[in-house]
Design a protein around this nucleic acid. Structure first.
Lengths: 215, 215
DNA sequence: GCAGAATTCTATAGATCTATAGAAATAAAG
DNA sequence: CTTTATTTCTATAGATCTATAGAATTCTGC
């Protein structure tokens, strides 16, 4: 009873249970899903689910954690890489939107249902989530320092805005599988970098002078 | 029993019931809210709620409708007004974010819970929702025609992006009442119009030549 | 104050749903 | 083949929750 929780099969099955919970929660929401729904999704009976979870709430916690873990890891790789600001931004958007397309329902559950977790678990997840935002924020700060971005931008706002726009499009992508993912990635990146305004301007075009001092 | 549904008091109380349902649904989600919660919020007993709604689902439908109605009306006014693209965009963002700040919980419910409605009601709401997006899209198209916006932008994408970013910030605003609404409105507008990139460019500054032909 | 209408209440049927206990089945090991 | 551990099942207690029926109360106009 205590030794088995380490067994390989148990861990595999538990992972399967987390995936099933993710799929069901993503579709019906936490309160709209019953433990019977989840069990059915993984092909066992309702009562058997409690071999893997102490409670329905624990299942939600595991799904949320599962949803954001890799995600933050991936962001660390992007942040640490040696690319231009623009490439990093695009990589971030690609990572975020691809998650949704790959039916990473767990990420959706993290976004939409985590507030139904008890205070403490929510705080733990918040640490991970703000780690993600923090990394993105640092990418923006670096962009400002390198002169790629306007010095006037609010990096906290910017990071939040990127996450917001990605989540919004993520939801749309999930519902419409015909959408061209790469097209949207490009348009999001373009919007965030260039905005929508027509530029009646002439490029000064001295690419060597990249660093501009600013206050 | 049939005549009273026209009475003034009935309509007032029913409106109150819709507001209560909106508040409770916004906080706990549709499936996480009980009819007891809603009734308690408006100071009556659970059973009495059914004097105003045929079912819990009907309540959700009414809340969603209530949430988006004025909203679309307001958008019509903005779209029909005689302002620059930039002003219209800012007015749209202001309208959207103010809604959230004014605890228009119904709008949040529309955004997050409408998919739990039966097929038919969802379709009816979709008509309203896409009317909203359509108006915003037309504002963008007009912006392109007038030369204020790049000819290369995808107006459908743009409208969707604005809605997405507003919803994302709306959620943040609701949770953090200390945030400066006007500051966020300005930053959102600025982002959408100008993007984040530093411009190593010189304005040509001939404001008279507003219309530029494009393919 | 009274009659009828409008509003709210109490009580409950019937259908969930979560979590637990213990039996049954399956797999692993000697 | 037998014993033991792991996994799944059945059955159910106990706590919801929605919706309805009919009684009780409050309001309105005379």
């Amino acid at each position: 009873m205590s030794a088995n929780t380490e067994s390989q099969k148990y861990q595999q099955q538990r992972l399967q249970a987390i995936r099933s919970a993710a799929a069901v929660f993503a579709e019906k929401g936490f309160h709209g899903s019953s433990t019977r729904d989840i069990a059915e999704h993984m092909g066992i009976k309702q009562g058997s689910l409690y071999y893997y979870f102490k409670s329905k709430e624990e299942a939600l916690g595991e799904v949320c954690l599962f949803g954001i873990e890799d995600y933050v890891e991936h962001m660390k790789v992007i942040a640490a890489s040696d690319q231009s600001f623009e490439s990093k931004l695009m990589a971030t958007i690609t990572s975020h939107l691809s998650s949704y397309r790959e039916r990473n329902e767990a990420l959706k559950v993290y976004n939409d249902e985590r507030l139904y977790l008890p205070e403490e678990k929510r705080r733990n997840l918040k640490v991970l989530g703000s780690g993600y935002r923090q990394l993105l924020e640092e990418i923006f700060e670096e962009g400002v320092r390198s002169g790629a971005l306007r010095g006037s931008i609010d990096c906290h706002f910017a990071a939040q805005a990127v996450i917001g726009i990605c989540n919004a499009w993520g939801d749309i992508i999930v519902r419409d599988p015909d959408l061209d993912l790469f097209d949207i990635i490009q348009k999001c990146t373009d919007l965030l970098i260039n905005g929508f305004r027509e530029r009646r301007t002439i490029e000064r075009s001295n690419p060597s002078n990249n660093k501009t001092d600013r206050i």
